[in-house]
């Protein structure tokens, strides 16, 4: 049964898991024990084991979001031992492996905490606020068809690369969860930077940043105080440079746009 390392010893762990039946209910930490956890398991596979155990005992399994389990869809979102996506840098929860823990460890698992991310159930939160921010302007206004040839506008490689790096945000919300202020600035800045860097994004550059920041505030995210935990916990390494760029874009737009509202 053991995988890559035949000598790896199975572990027994204590889990402190946040349980909350629904959005309006009171939640609490509940302690569970899991046994014979292989170090080669992913963190979510460990939770699968717990859930199968719970189901067999006739108890409600722990609800959590996940899907691709290869670190790209942005669904998984656990606050593990006081860290977004757990202790390993640059890693989503689904790519975190149990070999990062030791036999006998106690692991506390909580949902993302933010006023703008209400809990659906247990560890699953509602991140639709992110979608509404994108809907406020995180796009280029082009209809299907009628686009000029892809090579019509050359884009310097370093600009294209920087735009790509900003565009790799997976929208998981680890930044908000880690931030002391539950600020969504890293998320917003990644999209604003991507489109502000590219020629295609220039036409709506000013209105985009104005509208996205306004929506971000409406959703009730906090203000950035440049602590940097967001970038430190971002599983795909979105840089703080993007937040500076967002600030710059915002200031320039507010100072020069014709928008009086």
């Amino acid at each position: 049964m053991a995988g890559s390392n035949p000598n790896a010893k199975p572990m027994n762990l204590t889990l402190n898991v946040w349980r909350q039946p629904n959005r309006d209910a009171q939640g609490q930490i509940v302690e569970y024990k899991v046994k014979d956890i292989s170090p080669d398991m992913s963190f979510l596979e460990m939770l699968d084991v717990l859930n199968e155990d719970l189901l067999h005992q006739g108890q409600d399994p722990v609800a959590f979001d996940h899907d691709c389990r290869e670190g790209i869809c942005g669904s998984c979102d656990l606050f593990i031992n006081g860290r977004s996506h757990g202790p390993e840098k640059g890693t989503t929860t689904c790519q975190l492996h149990m070999r990062k823990f030791s036999d006998g460890d106690t692991i506390t698992i909580e949902p993302w905490r933010a006023h703008a991310f209400p809990v659906n159930k247990d560890l699953s939160v509602d991140r639709s606020a992110f979608d509404r921010i994108i809907q406020a302007g995180g796009y280029v206004n082009v209809n299907t068809g009628g686009a000029p040839d892809g090579n019509e506008i050359p884009i310097p490689k370093d600009i294209a690369d920087r735009a790509f790096e900003a565009a790799t945000c997976i929208g998981c919300g680890a930044c908000v969860a880690a931030c002391k202020n539950a600020s969504a600035m890293l998320f917003v800045s990644a999209k604003v930077s991507q489109l502000a860097l590219l020629p295609q994004g220039q036409v709506e550059r000013k209105t985009r940043v104005e509208n996205m920041v306004a929506q971000m505030d409406i959703e009730g995210f906090g203000a950035c105080t440049n602590i940097g935990s967001c970038a430190a916990e971002c599983p795909v390494g979105i840089s703080l440079e993007n937040i500076a760029m967002l600030n710059r874009e915002f200031l320039a737009a507010k100072a020069t746009s014709n928008n009086l509202a």
């Binding site: 031992n81 506390t108 909580e110 905490r113 006023h115 906090g222 105080t225």
Partner: peptide, 14 residues
């Protein structure tokens, strides 16, 4: 910012 967090974490290793 305090309001934006809402419920705090039980364990937080910022």
């Amino acid at each position: 910012n305090k309001k934006a967090r809402g419920t705090g974490y039980v364990v937080n290793h910022s």
